[in-house]
């Protein structure tokens, strides 16, 4: 190859296309062992089931591997990049190489979460487009996942491993396109939407309305007050950076409460919602907080503005004891 930079000296984002458990083990265990033998820190973020499988397959080497449960770390996919950054910061540096395995996309994951996971996969290329050399292997279950999901994996990973062979993905969209604003349409709400227009003068009243709606929908008082904090920060962004006003919509969708804020602003910093706040008090913190409160956050850039959609789970047991809303 004539490239000036040895690909081993930068971030390598690799998709592992596997069929079945044996193929998964064959694709991941040698990758882990190779890293361990080279003295590289290894973090595996997988399902509890796969962690158990790898633990057994690695035998006495398993104790040197860091494991984390993807159903916790990646419940909200926007929290995964901060977790990888923490791993890289804590264990890397000074050119020290690292390895990771992360599988945020699994069969049966709801569509809205899947889309955010795909966005996350693209943003990884932007987040780690630096000199820190490390390899992140992302297993994709080709036996179960839809073909369109595999096609997207070829666009969000520079390297693809298939049938035991690694190749540069011809479909990779490139780092710059990976960070381009996202305009994928959001699913339209099925049930009645309560809409409220707001500006600086009505922010106080907006919080009261969101609190009432959240309590009536079945959120605990503590969870409702967290959600109100999140909504308030998004609405504040509309007031300060999105034309001074916005429209908020609230609805319920099976066991979720969804709140959406639309304004005329431009959202053009792709990693803004997953940047850990810096040491200065003026560093932005709003979207970071929102991602740590909500179960899912979807940000979309339209021609004429921005949509931020927040989703929180309603505890169904609690909900059973409440009178249904009309």
């Amino acid at each position: 190859m004539s490239a000036a930079i040895d690909p081993a000296d930068k971030f390598r984002h690799e998709a592992l296309l596997y069929r079945g458990w044996a193929d998964f083990v064959a694709g991941t265990v040698p990758f882990i062992k190779e890293g361990l033998r080279a003295g590289e820190p290894v973090l595996v973020v997988e399902s509890a089931e796969k962690i158990g499988l790898l633990y057994n397959a690695l035998d006495d080497e398993a104790g040197r591997v860091l494991f984390a449960d993807m159903s916790e770390v990646g419940a909200n996919p926007a929290r995964i990049i901060p977790a990888w950054r923490e791993f890289v910061t804590r264990h890397g540096g000074h050119g020290k190489r690292l390895r990771g395995i992360g599988e945020p996309i699994w069969y049966g994951r709801p569509t809205d979460e899947l889309v955010e996971c795909q966005r996350h996969e693209s943003l990884l290329n932007v987040a780690f487009d630096g000199r820190q050399p490390w390899r992140l292997l992302c297993p994709y279950d080709v036996g179960h996942l839809d073909e369109s999901v595999i096609e997207e994996a070829r666009r969000s990973h520079e390297y693809v491993i298939e049938d035991g062979e690694m190749q540069i993905s011809r479909e990779f969209r490139g780092v710059e396109a990976c960070g381009a604003p996202l305009d994928t349409p959001l699913e339209a709400p099925k049930t009645g939407v309560q809409t409220v227009r707001f500006d600086r003068d009505s922010l106080f009243g907006l919080r009261a309305e969101v609190t009432r709606y959240a309590i009536a929908a079945g959120l605990s008082a503590a969870r409702a007050s967290q959600l109100v904090s999140a909504v308030n920060e998004v609405a504040t962004n509309s007031i300060l950076h999105g034309g001074g006003q916005g429209t908020l919509g609230m609805w319920r969708d099976s066991n979720n409460l969804v709140i959406e804020v639309r304004d005329a602003g431009t959202y053009d910093r792709p990693l803004a919602d997953r940047e850990r706040p810096g040491p200065h008090s003026s560093d932005p913190r709003g979207l970071w907080l929102v991602n740590h409160i909500c179960d899912l956050v979807q940000i979309r850039t339209l021609v004429d503005g921005t949509i931020v959609r927040l989703r929180v789970k309603i505890d169904p047991e609690r909900h059973l004891h409440l009178v249904p809303m009309e």
Binding site: A222, S225, Q226, V228, S229, R276, P277, R285, W288, L289, H292, I293
Partner: peptide, 12 residues
């Protein structure tokens, strides 16, 4: 308050 404690913790 709990709400404030959570916000302060998450935001560092």
């Amino acid at each position: 308050p709990e709400q404030l404690e959570k916000v302060m913790r998450v935001t560092g």
